[in-house]
Computed example of a mutant assay.
Amino acid sequence: MPTPPPTGPLVTRDTLRGQLRDCGVRPGETLLAHSSLSSLGWVNGGAVAVVRALLDVLGPDGTLVVPAQTADLSDPATWSNPPAPEEWWSAIRDTMPAYDPLITPTRGVGVIPETVRTWPGALRSAHPQTSFAAVGPRAAEVIEGHAPDCRLGERSPLAKLEDMGARVLLLGAGYDACTSFHLAEYRIPSPLVTVGRPGPGGWETVTEVSISSDRFDALGHDFERDRPVVRGRAGAADVRLFPVADAVAYAEGWLARHRPRAGEPE
């Protein structure tokens, strides 16, 4: 059968740049972008065109930040999509390469963050599972000091972005991808869990705050209802734009009311 033609709209670096400006992205700001390339339509130039458009709008004084997570650097006993056979677990733990911010690819966050990670001049934070990558004059400020036992809490780039007045851009991504909500989980607080991962000296375990994006869609719905959120379109994608600090503050109250604490009934 013949290959069907691509579906639109046709998106270019120029059209996307104009639409992002119309949505309110400002030159010189620091922007934490969560994105879905496929949601935009047919993008001429793919992820490279999207990153160029974002950097165009931010200008030379702006900084682009993306999640650069590597969830596959984790205990195979917790894998479910797909699961690993139990008889493989020991060998996987023994041979899994340790995190290297220069070469370890992103996993599960889309092609746009992976493109930013490899962009000339990009910097990446040190956490082996929940790193962030950044391009721009404030990149070092954002990514430095990401503690290896603090995935998305006070010693992560999220707290830096909150203090810096950064904003979140949801570019075709839903609120389930909004990492800023996780910072609120550290402040409720959430229960602790043991996390396994490969380390420089072999397999290691650390104690971490339990994080989950469960009900983030409902949280985002209420946040958008109750707080100022800029809404727009880019290509075929929905766009949301709001301050990191607003998202964290709202999520603290919402999660405390709507999520059961450890030991409480569901």
Rank of each mutant, 00 (worst) to 15 (best):
L31F: 01
V57P: 12
P60G: 00
L40R: 02
R26Y: 05
G59F: 10
W42A: 13
V65P: 14
L16W: 11
T12N: 00
G46K: 12
E29R: 03
A68H: 06
L64K: 10
L32R: 11
H34N: 00
S38H: 13
V43R: 05
A33P: 03
P27L: 02
G41S: 10
L55A: 06
D56A: 00
L16R: 04
S39H: 13
A71V: 13
S35T: 15
R17A: 15
L32S: 08
W42G: 00
D22T: 15
L40W: 08
T12L: 07
L20P: 11
R52Y: 03
T70F: 11
D56I: 09
S39M: 09
C23Q: 00
V65I: 05
T15V: 07
V66Q: 12
D56R: 05
L64R: 02
C23V: 13
G62K: 02
G28S: 05
W42C: 15
D56S: 07
L37I: 06
A53M: 05
S36C: 01
R26L: 15
L40S: 03
R52L: 03
V50H: 08
S35I: 04
A49P: 14
A53R: 09
G8A: 08
S39L: 06
A53F: 07
V25S: 00
H34I: 04
A49N: 00
T30D: 02
V66A: 08
T63V: 10
V48M: 09
L64E: 15
G62E: 01
L54T: 10
V57K: 01
C23S: 10
D22F: 02
D22A: 15
G45M: 08
G46M: 13
A53S: 11
T63S: 12
L20V: 14
T30V: 14
V50P: 09
R26P: 02
R17I: 05
L54A: 14
T63K: 01
G45V: 01
L10M: 09
